[in-house]
Design a binder for these strands. Structure first.
Lengths: 123, 123, 123, 123
DNA sequence: GTGGTCTAGACCACT
DNA sequence: GTGGTCTAGACCACG
């Protein structure tokens, strides 16, 4: 499996790494109790400084989604997915979605525009 | 008229200033040929360094939306709104919307959730 | 006769006005003893602030190319063209031409490129 | 190696800095993938404010010639030289050269004058 | 009055 | 160490 090593600018790399792990948790690719891929591996895979990966993992620990077991690695906590889902849902609906709606209106985009964009770039 | 002097963190101030001007252009508050409020005024109004305002205005010049006339001020170019609208539409549909759709799906949000969020935070 | 009212950016308008007068003197359109067009007329013609025109004319006086006769206007001095020609020649050969040569070499432009560019944009 | 720290007046310093980097790219001194000298170093070397250097580097980023990698430095993009060469060639032939030709004719300079000026100021 | 450039110095985030 | 953002204050050229 190929890995997407592209970084979008503006957002720090460690944040993007964190977001990818979260996405994998939400998508069920990483399940509760599973170990996170090792810092070394991720660093090598993504051609990134190990410290950057550590920073990403640490923020997951701070969020209580992940737990470090010394000598073994980092593991996804029980209940992580549910808590994550609830928190992100709320944040999205309250903070992001209103702004997105505003943008859509400002640009005069119709539901049709949005649906068409859904399937590939060239209709 | 009250002014919103709040800055959201993460995005640099000069970027937020630029975005506000763009929004005012899209909303028709600033029309083509109109002068932009002077650098000094904006700086005073928003309690911000003039250089920061300059940076915001410069990016508008770079985008070709605005023109500086020496000793007179900065003016909105003809055709600015149309070009802006087209560019932003495309960028939104190609770059932002796909990510947003992905997030919505990942969080398992229903159209109903999104519609309900539309009307105020506290239902 | 139509007038070219386009200003290239970067160079101040009063400087461009001065340069146009100089060009007309070199081209023999304005001859020694001739009066310069009045500040008012030029200002109206070019849609420019009269002060800006004055500034251009003043610099010509400073260069000794033009003389102001009170109540009559400004007149081109005797010997203006010759002096102008000699000074500009020297300045061009010593200051501008070396840089231009360097640019040409750096870009790898051949004499042929330069000759072809001479006749219209699309060969 | 000595550094030329002289600034020609008229053109802003950040513009001159940008031009020097471009010249080094065209001359092959700076190759694609190479890092640009750090903002701080250049600032110290040329006795200039770091912000001024930043402004120069930013314009290179805007032109797509250079890329900033956070925490690492700024690097010359692949294909930068070719794109640069093509763009500058065209700009020179279309915008600058016609004016230069006009000046040469106006001053009545012969090819001989131009060739002689080529070899040092004092013949 | 306007924009434009520059300085000195600070603080931040990223690697 | 790197780039990136911001401030306070100065000076200039232009209209």
């Amino acid at each position: 499996m190929k890995v997407d090593r592209e970084w979008s600018d503006g957002l720090p790399i460690y944040r993007q790494l964190r977001d990818r792990v979260v996405a994998m948790m939400l998508d069920g690719i990483l399940k509760e109790g599973d170990p996170l891929p090792s810092v070394r591996n991720v660093a090598a895979e993504y051609r990134v400084n190990p410290l950057t990966v550590m920073k990403a993992y640490e923020s997951l620990v701070d969020e209580g989604l992940v737990e470090a077991r010394r000598g073994l690695g980092m593991f996804i906590n029980a209940g992580a997915r549910a808590r994550l889902l609830e928190g992100e849902k709320q944040r999205f609906l309250e903070e992001e979605w209103p702004k997105i709606r505003e943008t859509i209106e400002r640009l005069g985009l119709t539901p049709d525009d949005l649906l068409r964009a859904r399937r590939g770039k060239k209709p």
